[in-house]
């Protein structure tokens, strides 16, 4: 049994071990994915020579650029200025991981890498399409199921509810 006065010491020791592990993890992350650890984000390069702002600024301030312009667009109808979520998607959409041959492109893996790493949840693509504009235009609007799994489950679920007495 641990005697009460040992407790603080044990806690301190545990804390120290945890801290060391944390430092170790930091060091390890300088390489790519070490098994089990969150891999460093490696977002693919977008189309064209460079982004509309230097990469460092984009990484730091993209949300501010977008949020500011979003209000102007929604509230005043100012469209076609420098920053645009549509243009982000147009340049940075990539095939779904593991489906490199698929024709549909999505920007979610590009955004998702850093956002998963930084644990910052975005909900842009709950409403906005994550697919490039041109693609949607060329193919016309069809409804190939993307978030289909949950929708399908909802359908099945509601069907079951209706059948149940």
């Amino acid at each position: 049994m641990t005697r009460p006065r040992d407790l603080p010491r044990r806690l301190a020791a545990t804390l120290a071990v945890l801290l060391l592990c944390g430092v170790g993890a930091d060091a390890a992350d300088n390489k790519d994915s070490i098994d089990g650890r969150v891999p460093l984000p490696r977002p693919a390069k977008g189309k064209g020579e460079s982004c509309i702002e230097p990469t460092a600024s984009m990484r730091r301030y993209h949300m501010d650029y977008l949020a500011h312009q979003r209000d102007e667009t929604v509230r005043q109808g100012i469209r076609g200025r420098k920053y645009s979520l549509k243009e982000c998607v147009a340049c940075h959409a990539v095939p779904e991981p593991g489906q490199e041959e698929a024709k549909t492109l999505t920007v979610e893996p590009f955004c998702g890498q850093c956002h998963t790493y930084a644990a910052v949840r975005i909900d842009c693509f709950e409403c906005h399409t994550d697919k490039p504009v041109d693609k949607a235009r060329r193919t016309g609007w069809q409804a190939p199921p993307q978030k289909e799994s949950r929708r399908a489950r909802l359908g099945a679920h509601l069907g079951a509810l209706e059948r149940s007495p």
Binding site: R150, R153, L154, H157, L158, L161
Partner: peptide
């Protein structure tokens, strides 16, 4: 449950 599936349920 309501938030997950939406208010359709």
């Amino acid at each position: 449950y309501m938030e997950h599936f939406g208010h359709a349920v």
